[in-house]
């Protein structure tokens, strides 16, 4: 028998598959935009809360009545900012989509939250340890691992009643705030962590990370007691 190849069938099937993909990509794009606009609204709300905290700082009151309120508000704010950060990372991981302006805005809020946390340590003797994680989204295999390790260590320390506040900056994004922080702490490679102002470059094993945070915590406590 004479055999044939059904070119027209394959062509139609190919066009249909490509069309299905295009619809998927189009709808996916719409949802990503809507995700970003939702996060943008969240960031605006967080920004208003940061402003309120700044106002609290201007309030020249008695530290015993001011500090508990300030620390508790700040703690909520930190968690909120952190959650927004995870959402942005998740969208990046799953959808390979990035809104650079939104991320810069997020880093700005993180920087403000970090500075406000430092104030809490100075004025209110807050014992929380501040950790800045500098990472890069470009060709840094160990950065992701470092990020997860830090979270695991934080959860472990939380069980020992040691509070670790986390701030993360993508050093390769071109954010002026992230760059300023990197310069301030002498960070020039990724990953790097800054624990209570001290910089550690390169990947750190979880055990060592835990002991670094613990020693910073006890150092803090003893200096607070003296």
């Amino acid at each position: 028998m004479e055999r044939k190849i059904s070119y027209e069938v394959y062509a139609i099937a190919f066009v249909l598959s490509a069309f299905t993909f295009l619809i998927g990509i189009f709808l996916g794009g719409l949802t990503t935009n809507s995700n970003f606009s939702g996060i943008s609204t969240e960031l605006s709300n967080v920004s208003s809360r940061v402003d309120s905290l700044k106002v609290l700082l201007l309030f020249d009151g008695n530290s015993s009545s001011f500090c508990p309120l300030y620390i508790s508000e700040l703690s909520d704010l930190n968690s909120e900012i952190e959650r927004v950060g995870y959402k942005l990372t998740y969208i990046e991981d799953v959808k390979q989509a990035q809104d650079i302006e939104l991320k810069k805005k997020y880093f700005l809020l993180e920087a403000e939250s970090y500075l406000l946390s430092q104030k809490a340590k100075n004025f209110c003797s807050d014992k929380s340890i501040l950790l800045i994680n500098f990472y890069s989204n470009k060709a840094c295999e160990s950065c992701k691992q470092q990020g997860s390790d830090i979270l695991r260590v934080r959860d472990e320390l939380h069980n020992q009643n040691i509070s670790l506040k986390l701030f993360s900056f993508d050093g390769d994004l071109g954010s002026s705030v992230a760059d300023a922080f990197a310069r301030e702490y002498g960070v020039n490679s990724y990953p790097s962590v800054v624990i209570n102002g001290k910089t550690y470059s390169g990947p750190i094993a979880p055990d060592r990370l835990g002991s670094l945070v613990r020693s910073a915590y006890y150092e803090n406590r003893s200096s607070g007691n003296s």
Binding site: I23, G28, T31, N35, V94
Partner: peptide, 10 residues
């Protein structure tokens, strides 16, 4: 919710 995207639709 955030995971709903291109692949979910495809």
């Amino acid at each position: 919710g955030l995971g709903v995207g291109t692949f979910t639709f495809i």
